[in-house]
Design a protein around this nucleic acid. Sequence first.
DNA 1: GGCGCTTTCCAAAGCGCTTTGGATTTCCTC
DNA 2: GAGGAAATCCAAAGCGCTTTGGAAAGCGCC
Lengths: 344, 344
Amino acid sequence: MNLKTLAEKLQLSQTTVSRALNGYPEVSETTRRRVEEAARAHNYRPNSRAKGLATGRAMVIGHVIPASTQHEMVNPVFGDFVAGASRAYAACGYDMMFTRVDDGDEEQAYHALVAKGSVDGVILQGPKVNDARIPLLKRIGLPFIVHGRSSGIEEDYGWVDVNNKRSFQRATEFLIDLGHKRIALINGLEQMDFAHRRREGYVEALKSARIEPDSALMRSAEMTEVYGHHETRAMLKMDNPPTAILAASMISAIGVRRAIDEAGLTMARDVSVITHDDDLSYLRNGSDVPIFTATRSSVQQAGEILSRMLIEKIEQPDTPNKSHMLEAELVVGRSTGPAPEMRR
Amino acid sequence: MNLKTLAEKLQLSQTTVSRALNGYPEVSETTRRRVEEAARAHNYRPNSRAKGLATGRAMVIGHVIPASTQHEMVNPVFGDFVAGASRAYAACGYDMMFTRVDDGDEEQAYHALVAKGSVDGVILQGPKVNDARIPLLKRIGLPFIVHGRSSGIEEDYGWVDVNNKRSFQRATEFLIDLGHKRIALINGLEQMDFAHRRREGYVEALKSARIEPDSALMRSAEMTEVYGHHETRAMLKMDNPPTAILAASMISAIGVRRAIDEAGLTMARDVSVITHDDDLSYLRNGSDVPIFTATRSSVQQAGEILSRMLIEKIEQPDTPNKSHMLEAELVVGRSTGPAPEMRR
DNA sequence: GGCGCTTTCCAAAGCGCTTTGGATTTCCTC
DNA sequence: GAGGAAATCCAAAGCGCTTTGGAAAGCGCC
C-alpha cells in the first residue's frame, strides 16, 4: 500500500492525503478523519526512504563504532547507555543506526554517513583526550553530542558527562579520611578522557593531603574483570601493598574483590575498595546495602539526556550548544573501612 | 556532490556514471577508471535513500527490541552479540538499525518496518517458548533468523542456537559424578526458550541418576548479579541446602559466589558452582585457569554466524532455511569439587 | 560502401513521497 | 446576488538514484 493507491481508493489527490496524515491545516477535519481511518485500515505507512528523499531528513541517529578496538560495544555500559538513548529516540520517532568502521577509517566513515545522508546526527561515544573526531564533525557539519568530554579540545560542542574528576577526588578523600595512605588506582585506559579526569581527581586529592602519588600504585587498561584481578594480585604482592583501591568500574571491582579473596584477605577490613558504578541493570551494586562503596551515576540516564539534546540540536540547529554535567553520588557500602594501621 | 553534478563534471550521462560505479560491464575500462577517480576526488557516495528507493533494498538489518522489559539491551550479552553481528554486516555493506517498541506493539512494529521499507531483514533475539513472533514474521514475509529456537513452534525457520539442553545435562552429570545429590538450578526466566531447555537438560540428568528433582532448588528470574546472590543466600539457609549450584550466566554466578563467601563457605570445597559462560569480552572466565567450571559458547561467534545467515537469506530468499547448532564446551575451573559428604 | 555485430553511451521513466503554486468551491458580508 | 476571503483540494515538479530501451560509433567482412 502506497500513497498513490491509498489516494485513489479515497478518491483524493496524493497531496491531500499526505497533508491529512502529516497534520497540515489545509485539510478539513472530516477528510482528515476519513484519511486517517483508511490509512489505519490498510496498514499504510509512508515509505521511509521516499519520505527521507523528499524531506531531506533520515529520522535516524547514528553511532559510529571503531571496529578493531570494539571497546564501546562489548562494554556492558554500552547496553544501558543505548537503552536510555533509545527511550528518547522512540519518543521522537527516530531510529538508531550503528555503523562499524575499520580502525583509522573513522574520518571516511563520517564523511560517508553525511554524503549518503543516512543519518541526521551522531552520538560520539568514548571520547579520548584530544579527540580528533570533534573538530572533524564540526568541519563536516554533522550534528553531534559527545558522551563525555575531550580534554585539550578548545572548540565549542555539546556534551553530557559525569564529573569524573570531582567524583574520584571525593572518593580518594573519603579513603584518606579513613586513614589510608597507600591508595591504588586501577583506572580505565588513560587515553580515554574519563579515565584521564579520574586520575587528575585522584592525584589532586592525594597532593592536597600531602601524599606523594606513587606510580607503582597506578594502573591503566581496559576495565575487564580479569584486569582488575590481575593488577590487584600484583599489587598485593608488593612489599608495601596498598590498603585501599579505587576501581574504574563494577566489573573490574569484581576482579579486585576476587584477588583480595584469593590472597586470604578480607575486603573492607584488610583492603578497602571504592568503584565507579554506572548503575547497570544487570550489575546493580547490591540490593539493600551496597556491596561496594561507590561513586554512582546512571549511564542509562545519561543516554536519555544525551539523545534528547541531540534531537533538539537536529531540529533546531541554530541554538547554541548545551552541556549537562552529572554529579556522581558517593554511596557508602561494605567495601570500605579504616586503614589497617589505624585499628591496632 | 550528487550523481548529476558528477556526471556533468565528467561530461558523461548519469547512466554511464552509475554503471561505471556499480561494476556493470557496458562501460569501457578507461571511462570506468576515469569515473572512479572523479568519484574519489569529489568524495562522492550515492545517497542511500535514493539508492534504496530505486533498488528497493535498504541495506539495513533491523533489531526490534521490546521496550518495557528491555531484557535484551541491558543484558551484557547484547553487546558481544552485536559486536559479532556487526562484523558480518560491515563486511557485506549492511548497517544495523535498532527500533525500540513499546510492549505489545511488536506486531505493529514489524508491520511498520516492512511497510516503511526501512530494513531488508531482522534478527529475532531472545525467543520465548512458543514465540508468536516467528509465525508473525513468516506471515509478513520479512526475512529473519532467530538467535535461539522456540519450543512449541512447528514452522520451519532459520536459527542459530547453543545446545542448551545438552550442555546443562552434561554439567549436571558432571556434578553428579562428583557425588553431588542436592543440585540447585538458578536459571534464567523460564519463559525464555534457552532457560526452558536448560531446565530440561538439568531435570533429565537428575532423573537418569534417579535423583528426584526438588522444586525448592529451582529458581527462575532475570540473570542479574543480585538475583544470583539472593537465591543462593536463601537456599544456603535451608535445612537441607544444596551442595552444588548451576548458574545461568557469569553475572549471576558472581552473585552466587558472593553469597557463598558471605555465608562463610568456600566455593568448590563447600559448594560447587557451574555456570554458563557466553565468553564476554569484559567478563572472561579468568585468564589462565578458569574461575568457574562452565559450559562455554561464544555469543560473539553466534552473532557473526547468524548475521551471515541472514544476509544470505536476504540475498537468496528462495534457498531453504538453514540452522546452526553450537555445542558448548565444558571447561573445568576452580569452582567445582567433590560433594562434601564424599570427602569425609 | 553497406551489412551485421559489438562496444559504448544516453534520454527518460520510475521508485514513493513532499511541496509549490494554483484552481475551485464554500461561506460571509453588504 | 456580487465580491472577496477562507477553506479545500489538486497537478506537477522534484528529491537522487537505477534501469529500460535505444541510439550512435567502431569494427571486420564481403
